[in-house]
Design a protein around this nucleic acid. Sequence first.
RNA 1: GUGGAUGUAGCUCAGCUGGUUAGAGUACCAGAUUGUGGCUCUGGGGGUCGUGGGUUCAAGUCCCAUCAUCCACCCCA
Length: 422
Amino acid sequence: MLTTRPRGTADILPGQVEKWQYIEEKIVRICREYGYREIRTPVFEHTELFVRGVGEDTDIVEKEMYTFRDRGDRSITLRPEGTASAVRAYLENKLYAGPQPVKLYYIGPMFRYDRPQAGRLRQFHQFGVEVFGSYHPAIDAEVMAMAMDFYGRLGLNDLELHINSVGCPNCRPVVRKRLQEFFQPVLADLCPNCRGRFERNPLRILDCKSDRCAELSREAPTTVDCLCPDCGEHFAQVQQFLQDLGIPYVLNNRLVRGLDYYTRTAFEIMAPDIGAQSSVGGGGRYDGLIEACGGPPTPGIGYALGLERIILALENRGLAPDVTSGPEVFVVVLGERAAREGFALLAKLRRAGIAADMDYQGRSLKAQMKYAGKLGVRYTVIIGEEELQRNIVVLRDMESGNQREIPGARILQNLAEPAADR
RNA sequence: GUGGAUGUAGCUCAGCUGGUUAGAGUACCAGAUUGUGGCUCUGGGGGUCGUGGGUUCAAGUCCCAUCAUCCACCCCA
């Protein structure tokens, strides 16, 4: 073999791809019901879009982007997430001039130069939604409710919704100051990582997985403690709407999302059983992002779900759909003349909407039967010299093994009729 | 980016302290059944032992590097 697929990429083969199609159908449907319309943006963008839109201090921008120079010497980046592109498209196509809010969804590949492991690839796939133009707390609740509804429709009823509010630019300096005051006395006890975070982004200390840091931060002030009156009220209303909808959630004041642009509502959906990468989706509000990208001051909120992780969760629970994509009828032929007749019959079956196939390997009757059995077809139609002379075909039910002779002219009608008549 | 484990037929794996032509199960193909799948039996094809170096009379087996996979960290979807 010349080469293999690049590290962290996957071939989605027949047998697996049906799971993707199943999920994709559910996505199209739920988005229509919730009033979201699809947008398709390029998989690569100018690098500065992500630097600005995701945030310079994020891991994504610092070390995970697939960035290269194209032949025109432009810096291009394979998209690491979907929000920045949606914002760019919203501004570039002046969607803010139309009725608000604008509710969009996308589905497609994303690229991050991470170290691959279970549930994490370099090319992975996300389904996400974005709402531009509404500050209303009900839209926060809708977005979360929709995500949970989507999981529920797939049978994933045991996932946990964690929510938090990270405040707005008014609250940020307050949290920062109070956290630094809190951690100052124990600074030397924090992990090396968190010692760095102390200056740069003390919020992230709350999120640290190290036992020592978690212990030290148990009594630390949280973002919720420092919310300004507006943010506090907004968060209270978001929760009220969730309760009204009967959506269970966990208040998690350690939840700090990695992307710089989040304001107020932040949430994450966890599946504890799919390995270390337990997040199957997350999102939040980003009221400053659109302005930061050069647009009019416009609020936004969205989420993204990882499709590979959803599939992992489905497989773990035995919820992945059965694969039933093979043909229904197999045409078995013996000899040249029968092969021509069979080929013509095959075309007729297909035109009648019946999934059908035949042998193209010159196999013996026995081998054709065996092959048909492996394909899992319900019926075989057998045509040989004898049948040709008598102007009939043999119709065999592969499950029961029963077979009967049918006049050649009637076979199409016979297969198209309900099973009871056969 | 860091640490650990693992790479032998398409797949799951065996191969003892280095020692003749590298095995099994399964899958694939064919025959038993000269026109009938699933069960059974028989036979057959298929392996640069991840790759590249090294040690040795001799390397699948030991050493080094490299690539890949898995797990954990980091981070996230």
